[in-house]
Design a binder for these strands. Structure first.
Lengths: 130, 130
DNA sequence: ATATATTTGCAACAATATTGCATTAATAAA
DNA sequence: TTTATTAATGCAATATTGTTGCAAATATAT
C-alpha cells in the first residue's frame, strides 16, 4: 500500500478544515492558501484526503462541489450517511451529523453510499432576516 | 406571465427525455442534438424547462449535473422530494419515484427542497455481473 | 399578413477540473 | 547523518462546463 505523505500544503489544508464549521469549496480553500501552494496541488490533496477517508465530497443542488472533514469519532468503518444543509441565502453547507434519513428501497439495488442534502434557510440567516 | 414557446429544439429535447429511462447530462443531450441546435441553446432550454417545472435538476455525488423529466401525474403542486439512484458501474441516474426519506430536522432550519441520492449498483448491472 | 417578443447562433469569456513532465521534498534505508 | 527512492509539487497547457451580449431568426397573437 502506498503511503501518503505529510506535506506542508496538506497540513495547511487540514488546518483550514479544522477551523471551519462549514464545508469548503476548492476555491475557498485556495483563497487561503494561494501563497502556500498551487491550485492544482489543492485538487490533488483533496483527492488524497478523500481516498484516505479524511475528507468527504458534497455536491450541492446547484452543482457546486464542496469538501468537509469527516468526524468519524473512532469507528473502524464509517459511511457518510449523514445529511448536509445548504443555505440558499449565505450558500454555506453544514453537516447535520445527527440527521439520518430512513427509507425503503426497492429490491435489487445495492446501496453503497447515500447523499442527503437539504436546502433552505439556515438558523443564522433565519435570525438575521427578522 | 411570459409565455414559453414550442420550438423545434425544445421539442427535440423533450423527445429525448421521453425516450430515456435515466437522467441525462447536458453533454449527453447535446450529443444527440448537435446538428439540431447549439450547445448554449440546450442550456437555455433546460433552464426554461426547469422553470416550467417540466424537468428537474439532479446533482450526482461526483458533482456531475443531470436532468430528468418530472412525472408528476396530475398534481397541482409537486415537490421533487423523491430519491435518485446513481449507479457506480454504468453511471446512469434513475429516479426512484416511490422512495421518500423520512427524517427529523433540528429546529430553526427552514427546509425548502431536498436532494436524496443513493449510489451503488443498479439492478441491471447487478444481474449482468453474475 | 404583420407586429412583437421569445428564442437562437455565434463568439467571447469565466470558472472549474485534469494531465504531462521536470523538479522538489518527504520518508525509508544505509 | 547521509543517501536513495518515490510521492508530491509547480507550471504550462488543455479540457470541460457553464454564462453573457447582441444581432438575426422564428413562434405566436392580433
Amino acid at each position: 500500500m502506498k503511503t501518503t505523505r505529510n506535506t506542508t500544503a496538506k497540513t495547511a489544508v487540514l488546518e483550514i478544515f479544522e477551523k471551519s464549521t462549514t464545508a469548503l469549496s476548492h476555491t475557498e480553500i485556495y483563497k487561503e492558501l494561494h501563497d502556500v501552494c498551487d491550485r492544482v496541488t489543492i485538487y490533488r490533496i483533496l483527492d488524497r484526503l478523500i481516498n484516505d477517508d479524511i475528507v468527504h465530497k458534497i455536491s450541492n443542488l446547484d452543482g457546486t462541489v464542496k469538501y468537509a472533514k469527516c468526524n468519524h469519532s473512532h469507528q473502524k468503518v464509517h459511511i457518510h450517511n449523514h445529511a448536509h444543509f445548504s443555505c440558499e441565502n449565505c450558500n454555506e453547507i453544514t453537516c447535520l451529523e445527527n440527521v439520518k434519513p430512513s427509507y425503503i428501497m426497492p429490491h435489487n439495488y445495492k446501496v453503497n453510499e447515500i447523499n442527503f442534502t437539504l436546502s433552505g434557510i439556515c438558523p443564522k440567516c433565519l435570525n438575521s432576516n427578522i
